[in-house]
Design a protein around this nucleic acid. Structure first.
Length: 826
DNA sequence: GAGTTTGAAACT
DNA sequence: CAGTTTCAAACTC
């Protein structure tokens, strides 16, 4: 382990170029911890789902960075890490080991982080090479991808990790329970070690624990434990079943610290479920651990409240998660758990079986990426989770491709076919590892990104103009990397990869008659155009007006669609969850979303509602409601406008806009009378303030973004923003309330002007400069966009979101700045 | 469960 | 790069 650690460390240090700043991060205990963790995941290897041996662990598989949240939904989030999955790489490793701890990978900070989690390659590497570099394995592919999305994330995550760790220092909480927890885990593994490999994983796990111990001083796991959803404290055993959960958690969790903490804990405690795959569990567990640690730290910072709250209160921020969860989510719209993991809902499903493997495999990619729609299909298709196997993962049914082509979801997902598969003449099996690897290489040689997640979280590219967008860090938008080519399904069926991934169509799509509920291509384009035109406020206003008109003309459904599905769905959980999976098309339009009037939305919004309930004041609640309505209207417009503003970050911008609008709205109860804003009631002011604080990263509160996320895209994990605070807000109404109280003051302090500017700018609800103003305030830095990216990245499930909460504290600012620097490098 | 539809992947 | 074919999932009945 030591050697591994050192290797990782060295790699990490050397790798990140931009990382000079990251050096500190690397030094951070968290970073080290992460690096060490990587070995564990690899462990996962195998039991159930045979990953490609060479590629072995799912993580490996996904050399390419997958973002796809959906597919991954069921799968462990780890996969999402931009690792290179390519078997090639693994082989290339001198160390022989597929693994990859990643630390070295391309020297990118990202990879570093990822590596930690991903790499584990089973076979040979298992014991030995835990550390390996992923080299550039997928680097080429990844690079591109990273550039676009992930790259920053990891770097950010690393930073965040540092920050978080630092912050953790601040946190008073102690890890007293950590030892117990650790012990329990160890016991679990010892007990359950069924596998040969178990030793390795266990060892890795121990290492992690050891490292984690180092962190104890900084944060406490104990609290985390206690967090258990059920209120139980974990036996300490690591639930095999948890794995799937982890995925979900990861995907969603990052963003939602609160959630995450709870979740992770719960999962950990979950114990048992009889997972056969200890390794898998460990793998999944690692990330979780990291998350937990970070989140926990974050939570501690933000407030202990998060952990305490029941998971159910938490809302899904991560769209992917939501997607994954959809099936489950339907049950409880606002509840995170269900959303996150179907598996959670159905523990039995999680079994070690192949599905299980798959999940882990895909997960990595996933959450963020929702990954390949295709891959997602399987899962999606079934009852979400419970597909035939009960894993929730569907199996392939290939008959002619021998499961060696991308037609095969299993293969495409980087996992071996399993029993559940009905494939014929399948070569996608451990026995044919060589063949699989070769095939993979061939495919990758043709298309380096072939195994990369198809769905990418794009951050707003927005040029300087959209400083606001940049600042808005808040949301990232997810889109299909290639775009769909639908001609008959109107992007309303799962034939459409975009739709399948719960992402809107973008410019990259060549679809015809797009009616993607998550975002129409046309709209996307329109939005872009509009944005471009926005050179002047007038223009913006005009466009906005048009949008409003258009929206008005549209039926309520449509409006809601746009707002909710993609980006806005504030209420998200319910919406997103909505049955999208099962019948996305159906559920979406139907009653819930579309029918919902803004008001209904309001109702759906837990936070708000509760807020009303909250002690503060009913008036406040009312204001919120009104605001929400207005916001909804505005949002729809904004979405359109912003939607495209940034390729990658279109949604981002949207959210930003939304935020701006929100501010607006909040500030001005009456949208129409935005001008009246000045007359805002103190209550509204509070709300506004809150939103501000949350919204404005620049303010030093990453959380600010989260608030936006909240409403916005299910897709992106709000986590980005960070904030535990946000989470809290989202999660429980009460919390929201709390947050407001707690956070507002600081936020206000930090970001006073924003809203004001907005107000002035947009008298008619039209979003004008508000966003910009926000941006300015938020990030004076030009790197606002970068920031947004970082935030987004952080939010990404794959990596434990170290940042968000951190931001809340001063550290955030630093993070942001650092991120900016990094981004600049990028 | 069989057959059809669909669009991505693969091929030319 | 475009057009065609192949393929397996998604969908329908």
């Amino acid at each position: 382990m030591d050697s591994l650690e050192t290797d990782k460390m060295t790699t990490t240090t050397t790798t990140s170029t931009s990382s000079l700043d990251s050096v500190a991060i690397q030094d951070s205990t968290i970073f080290n911890y992460i690096s060490n963790l990587s070995p564990i995941k690899p462990v996962k290897a195998a039991p159930v789902a045979p990953g490609f041996p060479g590629l072995s662990s799912p993580p490996v598989v996904f050399t390419s960075p997958r973002v796809n949240p959906f597919r991954e939904r069921s799968y462990p989030k780890r996969l999402q890490y931009p690792h290179s999955f390519s078997p090639e790489v693994s082989r290339q490793d001198d160390r022989g080991k597929k693994i990859a701890t990643g630390s070295d990978i391309s020297g990118k900070s990202n990879t570093q982080l990822n590596s930690g989690f991903i790499p584990y390659t089973e076979k040979e590497s298992d014991n030995k090479s835990s550390v390996q570099d992923q080299d550039g394995s997928s680097a080429g592919c990844v690079d591109e991808y990273l550039t676009e999305t992930a790259g920053v994330e990891f770097a950010d995550s690393a930073r965040s990790a540092n920050l978080s760790s630092k912050q953790s220092d601040d946190v008073p909480q102690s890890l007293n329970g950590f030892n117990d927890w650790k012990e329990s885990i160890s016991r679990h593994y010892n007990k359950n070690n069924v596998r040969k490999d178990a030793d390795k994983p266990v060892g890795a796990f121990h290492t992690i624990l050891e490292q984690a111990e180092d962190l104890q001083g900084k944060s406490s796991f104990d609290d985390i434990k206690t967090v258990d959803t059920n209120g139980k404290q974990g036996s300490g055993e690591i639930p095999c079943c948890v794995c799937p959960n982890f995925e979900s958690n990861l995907s969603t969790g990052h963003a939602h610290v609160g959630q995450h903490c709870e979740h992770s804990v719960a999962q950990l405690q979950h114990a048992g479920g009889g997972c056969k795959d200890d390794l898998d569990c460990t793998r999944q567990f690692q990330p979780e651990i990291l998350h937990i640690i970070q989140e926990y730290e974050d939570c501690g910072e933000t407030t202990g409240t998060v952990s305490k709250e029941p998971v159910e209160n938490v809302m899904l921020l991560d769209p992917k998660a939501s997607i994954a969860a959809n099936s489950s989510t339907s049950q409880s719209p606002h509840i995170v758990k269900p959303l996150n993991n179907p598996a959670l809902l159905k523990p039995t499903d999680c079994q070690a079986t192949p599905n299980h493997k798959r999940k882990s495999y895909l997960d990595s990619v996933e959450e963020l990426n929702q990954s390949n729609p295709k891959r997602g299909r399987k899962k999606a298709s079934g009852t979400s989770d419970g597909d035939g196997d009960g894993d929730g993962c569907k199996r392939c049914n290939c008959k002619k491709t021998k499961c060696l082509k991308l037609y095969c979801d299993c293969f495409a997902g980087g996992i071996y076919c399993a029993e559940p598969c009905a494939c014929q003449e399948c070569f996608n099996r451990p026995e044919y590892e060589d063949t699989v690897l070769e095939t993979r290489q061939q495919i990758e040689s043709r298309n380096p990104l072939a195994f990369a997640p198809k769905i990418v979280q794009s951050v707003s590219k927005s040029p300087a103009n959209s400083s606001r967008e940049r600042n808005c860090l808040t949301s990232s938008s997810t889109k299909h990397k290639r775009g769909c080519n639908c001609k008959k399904s109107m992007c309303l069926k799962k034939y459409c990869e975009c739709y399948q991934a719960n992402v809107g169509c973008s410019d990259g799509c060549r679809c015809e008659g797009c009616k993607n509920v998550y975002g129409r291509k046309e709209e996307y384009g329109m939005t872009k155009d509009v944005v471009n035109k926005q050179s002047t406020d007038e223009r913006l206003e005009d466009a906005f007006d048009e949008k409003l008109k258009m929206v008005a003309s549209r039926n309520s459904f449509f409006q809601i669609e746009q707002c909710n599905p993609h980006n806005l769905t504030p209420l998200t959980p319910s919406f997103q969850c909505s049955d999208h999976r099962n019948d996305a098309s159906k559920s979406q339009f139907p009653s819930r979303r579309y029918i919902l009037s803004p008001e209904s939305d309001l109702a759906s919004l837990p936070p708000y509602r509760k807020s009303s309930e909250s002690p503060r004041n009913s008036n406040y609640h009312d204001l919120l409601i009104q605001t929400r309505k207005d916001i909804l209207d505005v949002v729809s417009c904004h979405q359109e406008l912003d939607y495209d503003s940034a390729e990658t970050g279109g949604e981002f911008s949207q959210r930003c806009d939304v935020l701006a609008n929100i501010h607006h709205l909040t500030s001005l109860p009456d949208p129409p009378s935005m001008a009246k804003a000045s007359s805002m009631s103190s209550k509204t002011m509070d709300w506004t303030n809150v939103s501000r604080g949350q919204l404005c990263p620049g303010s030093g509160h990453s959380s600010s973004v989260s608030s936006l996320c909240w409403r916005s895209s299910p897709i992106t994990p709000m986590t980005q923003f960070g904030g535990a605070k946000l989470l809290q807000v989202l999660d429980s109404d009460d919390r929201l309330y709390d947050i407001l109280e707690d956070d507002i003051p600081e936020i206000l302090k930090d970001t006073p002007t924003h809203f004001n500017a907005m107000k002035g700018s947009s008298p008619n609800k039209k979003r004008v400069s508000p966003p910009h103003s926000c941006l300015h305030e938020l990030g004076s830095s030009s790197s606002a966009s970068l920031r947004s990216r970082q935030l987004i990245l952080q939010a990404m499930p794959p990596f434990p979101p170290l940042t968000p909460c951190i931001d809340s504290k001063e550290g955030t600012n630093h993070n942001i700045e650092d991120s900016q620097d990094d981004s600049s490098n990028m």
